[in-house]
Design a protein around this nucleic acid. Structure first.
Lengths: 444, 444
DNA sequence: AAATTTGTCTATTTACATTTC
DNA sequence: GGAAATGTAAATAGACAAATT
């Protein structure tokens, strides 16, 4: 252990402050010890630690101690390496680009409709009403039956999340998330001072609800809500069983929890009823068209129950004023016209094709995720961490994302990387990337 | 004064806690008195008050006391009234809708270009580069010479502001703003826990810089930055002199202040060099195309100096991921092709036409603002407050916005209302609204 | 099961700075 | 110009609760 870190704060080895036994390498000194050493009060240290915790850098538990978050430890390393000339992009998750021409076709029709100049004015309530109806149709396809007056618009899924977080929670509030949660969510929460608490919602063995973990975290951390992706979770790819959804819905009711359900990956999984369907009063449902249709279609639909709608609506107003009427109109037309079915169909076929390639190369490994998804979760052999493998792959020209990027708080990152399936332009490039990955895996 | 308010906290009239002399009706009891009464410590009260202050409900000054914000006092009243059947909209500020067909023309061309499907993928760096060049051109038109690598994109002006606030400031930070500041800015800051401090930047007599006020507020409140609209300020319509801009630039440098300059109304005023031009290292410049061109063009350009760019860029990423490539492409094409000139020209003519109508009806009153602007600041006779006039006008079917909506912190609202000039569809409707307003004014 | 370790939270102390009168 | 009024902020005390051993 190097000197001068938060772990040993420059204490001479073996001195009176080093009486602790073998501890995890990311364990910080106890607040009292540090206070004693610095000759200040415990709660002063506590306050300083709290600030770091809200930023997601530390996580502390009563009786257990304070630990440095793994992503705080690994981020620096991941960025420090030098870049090869061409990188095969298997890091960021995007849908296949084959939908673009469908959307363009709709747009071509749209621009020739009479009276369409109003697409550059503020939308009138009349316009948004039928668009909300379209959103309801889309939501139904995504497993949730809602009604048009519950619908709000956002500029994509991330924008929806930011709106919900700012609207419903305040600085310092805590919400529960899966121990590995997708990194943009983490970044948004850190930025807003909303603390993420890792909760193992789901039992790995059977995809059932881990009620104890939830109840425990809830009363222990005073959780205000949870954020959950029930289908093909990002990044670990598990899908909650219907029983688990039902159970979660019940629990949330009795615990007074707000559920933020991200239905974005519903269509890339075997369709199951949304949690929102079981707990409509407590659940905010998000579906992102950017992920499901095309990244350039910057739109997401949010369905919020009465008790939360106004707050979220105000927050979205404060962030965006409004979404582009053109985007909203385009999306609604795709849905109403049924063209969106063709897009989904094409996507599905392409995804399966790409995933077959993944299977061909990585079938010898534990590479999780359904064939209809746009990313996979590749478990690595014990001797290498995700972060090390990410660096290794990057040096060989392939970008994947290490588990460390997704680990929340004191979660010990799995030895795994997320592999995006549609990040490359072509199938050939994907194959090239997969070859590199298998070679690296075999060489370990 | 009613009992049981924050002012008297239920004390019996004339009791030992009522020794204060005549005080402003919005003055709260001193922290020590309240603490004494509740039998708790002063700083406990102080902490509670602080929470309210961050939300913009109170404002406290050492030695002076604590005051309830005027907009906190008036908002309830303004919403409580019942709605007439049809409302003439002179509340929200929008540009004239005559630009829409120009944009639609560009869009029609765009959809027929080959290779345009990529407008629904993520934008490549190649695409954004020429769009940033377009942004630079546009910024130049708005009085600021910048370069393309400083440019960031946002989903409209409000979105840009949210990004800048979250990126550069943290919960509890204070930034200086004009005593009357446009309400969406206030709402965004309140939501994010960023405290707005009213500073009379500008001397009303001559539009010169009020250096003392700025220096004072800066050291007294430890301001981290200021937000300022130098041209046709919203809502008061004043425009800073060039000398004032230069002076402010110098001062900001020596005070270590971040300047957030909102150039949105530059084109509606007599062109003057931007503050950013005098203090490029300290100034973030925002121009909103939604306000200048069409409300449905949800795009704003941000130019940020090196020291701030990454933080703002990250914040915008966390909020939006990215802007719509279609919006960005559309805006850039309008600028590069020069079509935007026709739009501005049409806007200007329309604005003058509409403002002439305003002048015709309101010339007898102190109705401030240039004829090229999209709103005016109507000073009312002494006997009526802005809030009361807003309610009165609303009852007669005209929506205007009272000064109370814009008053920051302990600012005493002017007796004035903001009158939007392009809110109505037609000139006739505008005239109708103006008739109502003059009749009401004459009847006072 | 009891003692110990460890983090948390609320209210407080205290010194201080500014404004008012 | 000095005393009083008033709000601010950092550090602290101390009771508390959960986890560990």
């Amino acid at each position: 252990m190097p000197e001068g870190t938060v772990q040993n704060f420059g204490r001479p080895a073996g001195g009176r402050y080093n009486k602790r036994k073998t501890a995890a390498w990311n364990k910080a000194a106890p607040q009292r010890e540090l206070a004693d050493f610095l000759d200040i009060n415990v709660s002063t240290v506590s306050k300083a630690f709290k600030a770091c915790e809200i930023k997601g850098l530390l996580s502390a538990t009563v009786g257990k101690g304070t630990y440095v978050s793994f992503d705080a430890l690994s981020n620096v390393r991941l960025l420090a390496e030098n870049t090869p000339v061409h990188i095969i992009q298997m890091g960021t998750t995007v849908p296949d680009h084959d939908a673009n021409e469908y959307i363009m076709k709709i747009l071509r029709n749209l621009v020739n409709e009479p009276g369409n100049e109003k697409l550059f004015s503020y939308a009138s309530p009349n316009d948004t009403l039928w668009q909300k109806d379209a959103a309801v149709l889309w939501m139904r396809k995504c497993g949730f039956n809602t009604d048009s007056h519950s619908i709000l618009f956002a500029n994509g899924g991330q924008n929806a999340i930011t709106g919900i977080l700012t609207g419903l929670f305040k600085y310092g509030d805590k919400i529960g998330v899966a121990p590995h949660t997708y990194s943009d969510m983490k970044a948004a929460a850190n930025m807003l001072g909303i603390q993420l608490v890792p909760v193992s919602f789901i039992q790995e063995e059977n995809n059932e609800l881990n009620s104890e973990a939830l109840i425990y975290a809830c009363k222990n951390h005073n959780l205000k809500g949870i954020y959950i992706i029930p289908d093909h979770q990002n990044p670990t790819t598990y899908t909650m069983s219907v029983k688990a959804r039902k159970k979660l819905a019940e629990l949330a009711g009795s615990l007074g929890l707000v559920i933020i359900e991200d239905g974005t990956y519903h269509l890339m999984s075997t369709p199951k009823r949304a949690i929102a369907d079981f707990a409509p009063e407590n659940t905010i449902y998000i579906v992102s068209l950017s992920k499901a249709i095309a990244p350039g279609l910057r739109l997401a639909y949010v369905s919020a129950p009465d008790q939360f709608r106004m707050q979220i609506s105000n927050a979205l107003y404060n962030i965006n004023i409004t979404v582009s009427p053109l985007m909203a109109g385009l999306a609604a037309r795709m849905i109403i016209s049924g063209q969106v079915e063709s897009v989904l169909d094409t996507h599905r076929k392409k995804n399966i094709l790409r995933n077959e390639l993944v299977n061909k190369y990585l079938s010898g490994y534990d590479c999780r995720g359904e064939d209809t998804g746009i990313f996979r979760w590749l478990m690595l052999p014990k001797q290498i961490t995700g972060a090390d493998f990410e660096v290794l792959a990057f040096k060989h020209g392939v970008q994947v994302y290490a588990a460390e990027r997704f680990a929340v708080g004191n979660t010990i990152p799995e030895k795994a990387v997320r592999v995006a399936v549609c990040g490359t332009e072509t199938l050939e490039e994907l194959e090239q990337g997969l070859k590199v990955l298998t070679e690296l895996l075999n060489s370990l």
